[in-house]
Design a protein around this nucleic acid. Structure first.
Lengths: 220, 220
DNA sequence: CGGAGCGATTTTGTATACAATAGAAGTGCA
DNA sequence: TGCACTTCTATTGTATACAAAATCGCTCCG
């Protein structure tokens, strides 16, 4: 699954990212370059490259004195993340509606079938669900053909706390995602930009409220 | 003006950025790390840090084989940049309207006075105009209090071609910016989010069309 | 000619040593 | 005790040497 000849900086990026996303890192905890270099098995130089990328995704933050910490977002900041993501993904959906072709439509349908399969396991297979969901949204982004948008989006997805909350979603909540995706596909098939945009906005905002209802309040 | 004790990576960032923004770099031309290290007078290590930042601002791009080039944006990509910027700055303006205080309002008025002074020189002082404009928008962004938004915006401003086109704007076009800013200040004073959002959207889109009308078509 | 292969050159990637700086922990004095 | 000052330590920043990879240009064969 992982290319053994991957550059060290890429290895570091993926290992550190996984380390944070899977919740092995406590929000607010300090990350030294040396520690990260141990985790990823490469020297500090490629680690620093990886950290720059993670800083841009805001998974790690820097103190005034340049020390590194695992990001810890307030409720308000998670809200803002969803709001921005809704704006930009809706825009991406509108662009994609104009540009989509039959081949891509077919791919979207297949991915959503996989997503439904994951939901219909007992219990639902959350990891596969998240994976299919990511591929669905990535494909739309690619189809939007906007390099700039593609550059911005990574900073708006994959909050650890959001991923973890997904494990507590009910089958009904998970299934609503599949239904949203089906309607998106319908909008794409009709090449209706406004429809696609509206559905995507609703989709993200519904996800946000599912998250808000499910997530436990964090201590101060 | 420049802190002599600035870290080397920051020096490199500023020097390379200026090199590109002032049009000394031809779009599409290759930039080797060694060349950049000569330009900025530091070793390749901090240059690589600086390049990562510039890559995120999309002022430089990487080929498939990791070689660096000065970014060269198609007309469609400049359109998209303005569209995204309009969306995000409008959102920032709405947030700022909710959060603004008298002190910040006063600062905005002062900056806009400086901007008007620059416009009313004969000929207009474009450098001062751009500088005041940047500070005006930066202050709104800061007032929006959204770290994520602040992280995204740098990728959407300061296209070299846009800066250069500004030198050909008429006094009427330049003055319209000052008028827009006055209306933004009025919206902020009223703490009217929707008003602020609309004015900002119009402001950015007007700037886009001024740019489109003025910019000369580039050869293929 | 054309283009396949190969060697030389350019360019990026990585490790490591050392420098600079920030933070922590004492130490001594009022 | 409180708190300035001063080591000492932890951490990031920078330069440099070398490794790996990509590109260029040459030669040779068809």
């Amino acid at each position: 699954m992982i290319d053994p000849m991957m550059p060290a900086s890429e290895t570091a990026y993926q290992k550190i990212r996984t380390f944070i996303l899977q919740g092995q890192a406590i929000p607010g905890m300090q990350l030294t370059e040396e520690k990260l270099s141990e985790i990823s098995g490469v020297s500090r130089t490629p680690v620093r490259d990886a950290v720059r990328r993670l800083e841009n995704e805001m998974l790690v933050v820097r103190s005034a004195s340049k020390r590194l910490f695992v990001a810890d977002w307030s409720e308000g900041e998670v809200d803002e993340m969803f709001t921005l993501r809704a704006m930009l993904e809706a825009h991406a959906a509108a662009r994609a509606a104009r540009r989509i072709n039959d081949e891509t439509l077919e791919l979207l349908r297949n991915i959503n079938t996989e997503l439904k399969d994951a939901v219909n396991q007992s219990p639902p297979d959350i990891t596969s669900f998240l994976e299919a969901n990511r591929r669905f949204h990535d494909l739309i982004l690619e189809c939007a053909q906007s390099p700039r948008l593609s550059k911005l989006m990574p900073a708006l997805v994959e909050q650890p706390v959001v991923r973890q909350t997904a494990h507590q979603y009910t089958k009904i909540q998970l299934n609503q995602s599949a239904v949203d995706h089906d309607e998106l596909i319908a909008a794409f098939t009709a090449k209706d930009e406004d429809w696609a945009k509206s559905v995507m906005t609703s989709h993200i905002r519904r996800a946000f409220h599912s998250f808000s209802m499910t997530a436990v309040s964090k201590p101060q």
